[in-house]
Nucleic acid binder design. Structure first.
Length: 423
RNA sequence: GUGGCCAUAGCUCAGCUGGUUAGAGUGCCAGGUUGUGGCCCUGGAGGUCGCGGGUUCGAAUCCCGCUGGCCACCCCA
């Protein structure tokens, strides 16, 4: 019978990697909370409509990357492809923004997109993110970027490249889109296949075509279509970033793949990862999203960062801390006759708050001690015939190569002292 | 979704133009040391050669399909 494997595009997180992820996730929570963000968790399945209306029907995500299915009542549900729409639905739906403004929240969890899998691109992937909901101040755009910046710093990741741009208001974008289409339409015959498609589906995407770069040079600039408030907003964001000591690279061709963005958009890149994998995360302002979802107009801004890709960078840079040993102490019996006594001693040591592994297998003592070295415990406690007779145990300091016979009453304290002193 | 590369012990890989018992290193288990680790020596277990079909006297090796991984593109985390 064929063995069952994890589905295509999904992976198991085994203990070594689990520790590294927890390190990253804890760092993100800690940094976000240091800015006053509070944790939230929203459903992994949502109404398909949340994304078709929120993210946009013409986006790649909604067109071809969603895992969608009908529930038993015939309602269309979707495995969430991104976190912003759900977070906004949750916060505004619960009227949290009626109590405190802005509402600052952070989250972490799995997301799903049905693209062809590749390193750093899986059907199921993980993002950490924050959303700042209820106010339109440019200071908040700068604030969320600073949170991300501090997060990378906490991970020891240097060399992050921050790109920023402004998409302007919804009406600015309509105006700009028209200007772009007017510019490209006469050129249509000379465009690459992808660009001809983009011209009709998502004209803003024309800007990041690599093949038709020569046309991009002469294309109208987004900035020229922005009205005064949007220009002022973006100028203020740039000023705040500079004041925070964050280097931002203006990229007037940066357009994000989701329809709900307006004004500030940004992305984080790192060049130790090749190609598109270097895109670590991004975000921006989405003042129009709440209305698209049927809620009262509510300005908001936020970001989402890819956990797997960030870990790839941290691994490449060697900033992931060594995973702690699984336990501090190995308790082993010498002969099967001492198994019960050894188990009791292990309980005693655990009760004192020390992580303890018990080995009462029928094998030679030297193999058990070798196992202690493999696990990485710093202390071995040996329980043999003599020790049981004397209500004691041998406590061996594996780093210090010394050992002593200790009465059971003093065992836990002795172990704690060795562990405390050795580090 | 489009195109390309790849798939052999738990892991990293070797296996020449098809040839009979598929190997190495490492890890695992055991013995050397009838109660003391990290080194060393010896032995052992462990493989439907990703899956299915085809060509052939004979397939890990050649062909086709499938599955999975990787790479580029699209796009994005």
């Amino acid at each position: 019978m064929p063995q069952i494997a994890a589905p295509r595009g999904t992976r198991d997180i085994l203990p070594d990697e689990f520790a590294a992820r927890r390190w990253l996730l804890d760092a993100h929570s800690a940094v976000a909370e240091s800015f006053g963000y509070r944790g939230i968790e929203t459903p992994i399945i949502e109404s398909s409509e949340l994304f078709s209306r929120g993210v946009g029907t013409d986006t790649d995500i909604v067109e071809k990357q969603m895992f969608t299915f009908d529930d038993r009542g015939g309602r269309s549900l979707t495995l969430r492809p991104e976190g912003t729409a759900g977070s906004l639905r949750a916060v505004v739906g619960a009227h949290l923004d009626q109590e405190i403004r802005p509402v600052r929240v952070h989250y972490a969890g799995p997301f799903f997109r049905a693209e062809r899998p590749q390193a750093g691109r899986q059907h199921q992937f993980t993002q950490v993110g924050i959303e700042c909901i209820g106010e339109s101040s440019p200071a908040l755009d700068a604030e969320i970027i600073e949170v991300a910046w501090q997060f990378y710093k906490a991970l020891g990741i240097t060399g992050i490249q921050l790109q920023v741009n402004s998409l302007g208001s919804a009406s600015d974008r309509v105006r700009y889109r028209a200007a772009l289409v007017a510019y490209y339409t006469p050129l249509e015959a000379s465009l690459c296949d992808d660009c001809r498609r983009r011209l009709h589906t998502n004209p803003l995407r024309l800007l990041d075509c690599k093949r038709d770069a020569r046309f991009v040079e002469g294309a109208p600039l987004l900035w020229d279509s922005l009205d005064r408030p949007s220009r002022d907003h973006f100028t203020a964001v740039l000023r705040d970033l500079e004041a925070a000591g964050i280097e931002a690279i203006r990229n007037d061709r940066l357009v994000r793949g989701l329809d709900y963005y307006s004004d500030t958009v940004f992305e984080f890149w790192h060049d130790v990862l090749q190609g598109a994998q270097g895109s670590l995360g991004g975000g921006g302002r989405y003042d129009g999203l709440a209305e698209l979802l049927g809620f009262p107009a509510t300005p908001a801004t936020g970001y989402a960062l890819g956990v797997e890709r960030t870990l790839m960078v941290a691994r490449a840079l060697g900033t992931i801390p060594q995973a702690p040993a699984a336990a501090d102490v190995l308790v082993c019996s010498v002969e099967p006759a001492e198994a019960d006594a050894a188990a009791g001693i292990a309980r005693l040591i655990r009760a004192a708050g020390t992580r303890t592994v018990l080995d009462v297998a029928e094998r030679r003592l030297d193999r058990k001690l070798r196992g202690a070295g493999r696990i990485g415990t710093r202390v071995a406690v040996i329980v043999g015939e003599n020790e049981v007779a004397g209500d004691s145990a041998v406590v061996r300091d594996l780093d210090g190569h010394s050992q002593q016979t200790v009465p059971i009453a003093e065992l836990a304290a002795t172990v704690t002292r060795i562990l405390g002193g050795a580090s």
